[in-house]
Amino acid sequence: MSTDSNTMFLKIEFGGGLELLFSNQRSHRITIPSTVPADNNTSVTTKDAASPATRPADVTYLLHHLRDHLLKEREELFMENGTVRPGILVLINDTDWELEGEGEYLLKDGDEIVLISTLHGG
């Protein structure tokens, strides 16, 4: 899908009300770099000479990217201590991210990532 081997294409879905923090849009298609700064800084590109430490893009980086570029409000309802807030589930290609290494899962071009809030209660 991606024509540029330096980037990858991802499908992002929000559910359970989490979309309210993301312009109330449930489905997003985004492109992120394949190699990212080790400190999860999403405002620089790895081509910058100033950030030599890099690693392959993983879910933790994606969460920072979503927070920095797609999140519209109330960051504290999305992330906490460098990961998603308790009560937010992540599915990677329809599978619980707990089976896939959580934040350490290395993203592949075309992956579908679903983030669902359980905080709307019952």
């Binding site: 559910g15 359970g16 809030s117």
Partner: peptide
Amino acid sequence: PLRDVGMKECAIWAWWCGLRIVGRER
């Protein structure tokens, strides 16, 4: 009847069944 079913399972059920969650006032 969901007293033995956690929120996580509820959320996954809702997602896989395509249920729309209106949300509630907390």
